[in-house]
C-alpha cells in the first residue's frame, strides 16, 4: 500500500488483492470443531488470559455459515468424519482449516481402527499445529502462519484450491 501523494490524506493506492487479503487475515471468524481434550485447551486460548482476539480471530461462531476458519480441535473418528465433512461444506468461501493437535493432524498416538488418520483425508487442511494438546501459544503460532498464507493467496485461490481437492 502507498499514500497517494497527489491527493494527500485522502487516498491510499494498493492492489485489490492485497487490501482484501489484509482484511481477511485480520478478521477471521473461527468455528471450533472441538471433540476432545484439545477443545479444552481451545477454551483456554479464547478466554481472557491468552486471548485469541489479539490476533483478530476472537469472534467464535457456532454456525459454519457465519465462519471462515474451522479449527478442528480433537480426535476425529471414522464415525465423526462424515459429519465433519458436512459441516465443512456448509461454510462459505473463502475458508480455511487449522488442524489443532496431533490427533486432528495425523491421528496422533491413536493409530487404530476407530481413528481417522488426519483430517486432511476428508477436508483440505491449511495449517497443522503440533502438540498433544498444543499450548495456546502454539495455536497462535499456527494462526500467524495462516495469516501469512492468506496474504500470499490470490483472490479466488482458496475457492479454486478447495474445488480441486474436494471435487
Amino acid at each position: 500500500m502507498a499514500v497517494d501523494l497527489a491527493n494527500p490524506g485522502n487516498f491510499l493506492t494498493t492492489r485489490l488483492r492485497q487490501a482484501i487479503n489484509w482484511g481477511r487475515k485480520y478478521s477471521l471468524w473461527p468455528i471450533p470443531y472441538g471433540t476432545a481434550c484439545c477443545a479444552i485447551e481451545f477454551m483456554a486460548a479464547v478466554s481472557s488470559y491468552h486471548d485469541l482476539s489479539r490476533y483478530g480471530a476472537e469472534l467464535v461462531r457456532f454456525s459454519p455459515r457465519q465462519s471462515d476458519l474451522m479449527i478442528v480441535a480433537g480426535t476425529i473418528s471414522y464415525k465423526q468424519a462424515p459429519i465433519l465433512k458436512t459441516i465443512y461444506a456448509q461454510m462459505c468461501e473463502p475458508k480455511w482449516v487449522v488442524a489443532m493437535g496431533v490427533c486432528a493432524s495425523s491421528g496422533g498416538f491413536y493409530k487404530n481402527y476407530g481413528t481417522l488418520q488426519g483430517i486432511d483425508r476428508v477436508i483440505p487442511t491449511d495449517i497443522y499445529v503440533a502438540g498433544c494438546p498444543p499450548t495456546p501459544e502454539n495455536l497462535f503460532h499456527g494462526l500467524l502462519l495462516l495469516q501469512d498464507k492468506i496474504d500470499r493467496e490470490g483472490l479466488v485461490a482458496s475457492a479454486q484450491r478447495h474445488g480441486e481437492q474436494t471435487g
Binding site: 476432545a36 481434550c37 480426535t75 473418528s77 464415525k79 498416538f109 491413536y110 487404530n112 481413528t115
Partner: peptide, 29 residues
C-alpha cells in the same frame, strides 16, 4: 461412539506402563 478412540484395543497393543498416557485422555477434565 463419536469419540471412540479404541482405548481398550490400544491397551492390548502396549506394555502396562505405556497405557498410562492413554488413561489421561479418558476423562480429560
Amino acid at each position: 461412539g463419536y469419540l471412540h478412540r479404541c482405548f481398550e484395543k490400544e491397551a492390548e497393543d502396549h506394555t502396562w506402563a505405556e497405557v498410562m498416557p492413554y488413561t489421561d485422555r479418558l476423562n480429560y477434565c
